[in-house]
Design a binder for these strands. Structure first.
Length: 293
DNA sequence: AAGCTGATTTCAGCTAAACG
DNA sequence: CGTTTAGCTGAAATCAGCTT
């Protein structure tokens, strides 16, 4: 467990998004209005451990996707007219869209990009669901259990007044306490996973389809997803993954662990789900992360 | 009722650590 | 090794409690 804090940084993803913005502006002679942000982000990344390598990775990955972006936009320009504006969406419209960068055409139509830059292999997180989305799509309300998890921990510490944040810090700073909290949290983690599996399998087909369409964000016809990692560039349009003629969607028991499961679409393993916590098991909120298989 | 403030949650994202 | 699990970041959204 060395260098934990060095693990990830949002600034890297933001920096990458802005490289793409800048490139599109350059392609179509549009003023790039995020120079200041780009410079600040570059500095933020640079001060991290191996900052220089991190920046280089983003720059290298960016070079790999340039021709693809150009190709897509040239096609879209044929449909929607020339590009007149580039908008860094970033995390501003979290609920509405996963788009990171929007190119606006003269017809007011858009071409949107969700971009993932990954150092090694894999396709990144497809979706990260909090309690609200879990309740909405799976009908699982875990708030009572979540409360109980914290009560267990408070009882164990005999600490009933301290704020949750303070307790969390205290536990994080003691490997012994953290061990206890993790063990306690794991019970609930497994519980939530079980609840979600059966809730999912018991949904009517239509609701399963709704859920899967939501996690792929496939109601947006202007959206492209571009994933770049050490071996290749993956591009798809979520709308093309819209599930219409599907007969069977289910979680199969043989591809399951205590904390994760695989969703099969017409018997083909398609999505992998992780049930865990955002900031450490036993000391933070639960979430589910969904990945392509 | 409406506004403020600080705490907590949500969610996209990256990647180290653990696992087999 | 490749795959799975999970810790961490950051910023917006939401919530709870207090005040006006």
């Amino acid at each position: 467990m060395k260098n934990r804090k060095a693990k990830s940084n949002r600034a890297q993803a933001d920096y990458f998004e802005l490289l793409v913005c800048q490139y599109i502006c350059h392609l179509y002679g549009i003023t790039f209005s995020y120079s200041q942000d780009l410079a600040e982000l570059s500095n933020k990344v640079l001060v991290l451990p191996s900052g220089r390598e991190r920046l280089k990775l983003q720059n290298d990955n960016f070079i790999k996707i340039q021709p693809k972006i150009k190709e897509i936009l040239n096609y879209e320009i044929g449909q929607k007219g020339r590009v007149i504006n580039v908008i860094w969406v970033g995390r501003n419209l979290l609920i509405e869209t996963t788009s990171d960068v929007d190119a606006e055409h003269i017809t007011k139509q858009k071409t949107r990009f969700s971009i993932k830059s990954i150092a090694s292999t894999g396709t990144g997180t497809l979706k990260n669901l909090g309690a609200r989305q879990i309740q909405k799509f799976l009908g699982v309300n875990f708030s009572a259990q979540y409360k109980k998890m914290w009560e267990d921990l408070r009882d164990y510490l005999n600490e009933h007044d301290l704020s949750q944040g303070k307790i969390k810090k205290k536990v994080q700073n003691s490997s012994c306490l953290l061990k206890w909290a993790t063990k306690n949290g794991q019970k609930y983690q497994i519980m939530l996973n079980d609840l979600c599996v059966s809730a999912f399998n018991n949904l009517p087909l239509k609701k399963k389809v709704d859920f899967l369409n939501f996690i792929t964000d496939c109601n947006d016809e202007d959206l492209y997803v571009i994933i770049v990692n050490s071996c290749d560039v993956i591009i798809y349009k979520p709308i093309e993954k819209n599930l219409k003629l599907i007969k069977n969607i289910e979680v199969k028991k043989d591809k399951m662990t205590d904390v994760g499961y695989t969703i099969f679409v017409d018997n083909k393993p398609t999505y992998r789900v992780q049930t865990n916590n955002t900031n450490g098991i036993g000391i933070s909120a639960f979430c589910q992360r969904i990945f392509w298989v």
